[in-house]
Simulated assay, not measured.
Amino acid sequence: MTHSLFYAKIMLFGEYGIIENSKGLTLPFNSYKGTLQFSDLKDDKEQKSNLSLKAFSKYLKTLKFPSKFELNNTQLEKDIQQGMYFNSNIPQGYGVGSSGALVAAIFDKYCIHKISPSKIAKQDLKSLKLILGEMESFFHGKSSGIDPLICYMNIPLLIQPNSEVDKVGIFEGKEGKGAIFLINSGVPGETEPMVKIFFEKLKNEGFRKTLKEEFIRYNNACIDAFLKKETKPLFQNLKKLSLWALNHFSPMIPNDFLKIWKKGIDTNTYYLKLCGSGGGGYILGFTQDYTTTEKMLKNYNKEVIYRF
């Protein structure tokens, strides 16, 4: 079989907010990737992946897809019996799309009427997102479909408030003082419990009000400024977004990071936000002065993903 690679993703903006109709901006993250392969399954990791695929294939048989997106479940089951597994170095529970890449790989290989991602019409992106979301729900209980869609398309995507999806061009980052970076919390997060916390919070009218009137406004303003390359409004709204998350998403922020989260806001040196559902995994950072930020966060494992 051809080894199609599926890369990780990073949601720069929109985590949780897209559930309540905010915009979202997501990018491919090519540092990590996965591919479907065959083996004799003597390795424990390969065995575990193969068993997971067996359970996933049973779940997929319960779903009903439109004919244009129908899967060849019979061939999928045969290949799993032959020792297929997902060979991936995407860390699980880090908010960078480990299950999204797997779903994208399965859809790509077993969709009967295969369409090249580059040829998918804009009007089909919304339908495809819903289908991929149904598939990924096996892993998280509920999925918007954005992670597997970005992993499948492998291009930057803008999610609109009406769930429409647009392909967008992101300007090439130049080596400058500023940076977008990841901090490794050192522990994986679990998506389902974090999402449950969020839905519990949504039952509170005050939280719903501040989410819609503040969080979504700051989030959307950040996306608009980022796409227009407007640094000043971007960082003005990033500060508000980071402070809002500290006040309202603290259960999703690992305890060891609450102090440095606040320090970034207080010093205006860097601003942190959740990467994915939180609870662990990666934390996303933005700074206009990475040299100073690096010194302030010297004890943390960081990775620069974009320079400007």
Rank of each mutant, 00 (worst) to 15 (best):
N73I: 11
E214S: 10
A105D: 05
M1R: 15
L71A: 06
T287S: 15
K64R: 14
D166Y: 00
T2H: 01
F207S: 12
P117F: 06
I19N: 02
N255S: 11
E46A: 07
L53I: 04
K45H: 11
Q81F: 08
N301R: 13
F308D: 13
I265N: 02
A179E: 00
V168R: 14
L243V: 07
G281C: 12
S4W: 00
S4A: 01
P28W: 04
N220S: 02
I146H: 05
N220C: 03
K259S: 14
V96I: 15
S88C: 07
L76D: 05
S185T: 15
G34P: 05
K58S: 10
L149Y: 10
S116P: 03
I283P: 05
I223E: 05
K64M: 06
Y306Q: 03
M296G: 14
Y32P: 13
A55W: 01
F86L: 05
C222G: 03
K109S: 13
L272E: 02
T35C: 12
K42F: 07
D40T: 09
S127G: 12
D108C: 11
L53K: 13
F139P: 02
F86G: 09
G276A: 13
K114W: 08
E164Y: 09
D224P: 01
F207I: 10
D43F: 05
D43H: 11
Q82C: 14
M84I: 09
L272C: 11
I180K: 13
G278N: 08
A105H: 10
I183G: 06
A101I: 07
L36H: 10
Y271D: 03
S57C: 03
T35D: 06
G169C: 08
K33S: 14
Y152F: 14
I115G: 03
E70D: 15
R208I: 12
T26S: 06
V304K: 07
A104T: 08
Y16T: 11
K33M: 11
M153Y: 12
I106G: 00
I19Y: 00
K177H: 13
N299G: 15
M153K: 12
E175A: 11
T74N: 00
G264T: 08
G145K: 02
E20F: 01
K167P: 00
E20L: 03
N237Y: 10
I150D: 09
F171D: 12
E230I: 00
S250R: 12
H3C: 03
L202T: 01
I170W: 01
Y94N: 04
E134K: 10
K48Q: 14
L41P: 02
A225E: 00
I180L: 12
S163E: 15
Y300P: 10
K122V: 01
